[in-house]
Simulated assay, not measured.
Amino acid sequence: MSSAIILSDSRVVNTSTKNAYQKLIDPAEQVKWNSLYLEATLNPKGEIKNNSVMTGNFKGSGKATVIFQNVQPNKEFTHYSKMKMFNLLNLGEFHHTYNVVDKNGQTEVTQTVSFVPKSFGLLLKSVIVNSFKKRLPESFDEFQQYIEMNNA
């Protein structure tokens, strides 16, 4: 059994924790700021809770089903998915946790990615990890720009 590869980073953005959390958790908001999201739908619609399901089409990974876990409003939530290549080859399990903390009226956002490679993912482990390392700062940049443009 392979062990989890964990990457984490933080950035302070100029907005409230409530606003940051809402823009991070809501698939309709993520489609607006996250360039990997081509489309995303929430089921059931409404308030996001543990086991809410987001289905979507994501740049670089195609169609995916994401389950919300550890939902703590205005604090933290996790996206869980089984990563597949071409929607059939098992790459492993993926957890992406967002955590928001007030920092004197601004918000520190921490993203933690945990990837457990399995089957075909063991062969592509270094490629997948390198893409996560590249993507974390890019997603922070996209999020920060979106907050700055939409923080009235």
Rank of each mutant, 00 (worst) to 15 (best):
Y21E: 00
P117D: 06
S61A: 04
N43D: 14
G46F: 08
K125Y: 04
V31H: 07
K103A: 06
S119C: 03
N50R: 05
L89Q: 10
M149C: 02
K63D: 11
V31G: 01
N43W: 07
Q22M: 12
S119R: 04
G62D: 01
S126A: 11
N57A: 01
F94T: 03
N130Q: 15
H96Y: 08
D102P: 05
K75E: 13
Y37E: 04
V12W: 06
I25S: 10
S139K: 11
N14A: 06
N74T: 10
S61T: 03
G60P: 01
G105K: 01
K23Q: 15
D141L: 11
K18C: 09
S35D: 09
K134L: 11
Y146R: 04
M54W: 04
V66Q: 08
H79E: 13
L91V: 14
K32M: 04
Q22G: 14
E138H: 14
E39L: 05
N151M: 05
Q145F: 01
D102W: 02
T78R: 00
S2K: 13
V127S: 12
E138V: 13
I25M: 14
F132S: 07
I48Y: 10
K125R: 12
Y98I: 00
V100L: 10
L42K: 10
E93S: 13
R11H: 13
R11S: 13
L91K: 08
Q30K: 15
T41I: 07
K63L: 09
F86Q: 02
G56V: 06
T41L: 07
G46I: 05
S16D: 12
N57K: 08
K125M: 05
N19M: 14
G121M: 06
E29V: 04
A40F: 10
E148T: 11
H95T: 03
V101T: 07
S131E: 14
I147W: 02
N90D: 14
Q106N: 13
N57S: 06
Q144K: 13
L136I: 15
G60V: 02
E39W: 03
K133P: 05
